[in-house]
Design a protein around this nucleic acid. Structure first.
Length: 209
DNA sequence: AAGTGACA
DNA sequence: TCAT
């Protein structure tokens, strides 16, 4: 029996095939305006194996000099990020349980060989808002742990249309992608997987609850 | 530091 | 798993 950490919710096939296709079309528009680029690790400058872009008012970026951060422009083009598609804002409203809109949607494209090491999403000012993750295309082996490194981890397969929510006690759980299962979905024209993560970055102006 | 390699 |  697979037990997820508290605060971590996996909703298999939350999006039906038509919704997935519509989302992919919107992401293609995003990528046309804000091209995928290869992010590199702070200090070492080592490249990550995924390619990234963002939409929304802010985007998560990393480079050798300044490291992990959010900024309002694409690091290569210098242009503002494309707007958050309404479909993603609505999805957030449905599942986030948080009364303010997402500010960033990080778009990660995994080629079949790509991986993502275990990490926390901790570059946001607001940890009360969840992180909402959407899988599109090829399936992957996702691994999630506790809020400290070296704790127990559990692995689960994520398929196209699945949604994972890291909220509450699960908000800062370590997580990563160990492998992509090639040719497991016909959704994308190219082999691979798209992951979208919706985040609230800044504290809302009226967060004095 | 979301990568990687040394080490047990 | 740890150091980085």
């Amino acid at each position: 029996m697979l037990v997820l950490p508290k605060g971590v919710r996996h909703i298999p096939r939350f999006l039906d095939i038509d919704e997935q296709r519509a989302l992919v079309a919107e992401i293609r528009d995003v990528v046309r305006a804000a091209p995928l680029y290869v992010p590199v690790m702070p200090r070492s400058g080592k490249p990550m194996s995924v390619r990234m872009t963002n939409c929304g008012t802010l985007g998560w970026v990393t480079d050798k000099e300044q490291g992990y951060r959010y900024q309002d422009v694409h690091p290569v083009t210098g242009e503002p990020w494309p707007a958050m598609p309404g479909r993603l804002s609505r999805l957030w409203e449905e599942v986030a349980g948080y009364p303010h809109p997402p500010e960033a949607c990080l778009v990660n494209f995994y080629e079949p060989e790509a991986k993502m090491g275990l990490h926390q999403d901790r570059d946001e000012a607001d940890f009360d808002a969840p992180v909402v993750s959407i899988s599109l295309g090829d399936s992957c082996l996702f691994r999630i742990g506790e809020r400290t490194r070296g704790g127990r981890t559990v692995s689960l397969r994520l398929d196209s249309g699945d949604v994972v929510i890291l909220g509450g006690e699960g908000r800062l759980c370590y997580h990563g992608v160990d492998r992509i299962y090639p040719d497991t979905s016909p959704l994308l024209k190219k082999p691979g997987r798209i992951n979208l993560t919706l985040r609230r970055v800044t504290l809302p102006a009226d967060s004095s609850a």
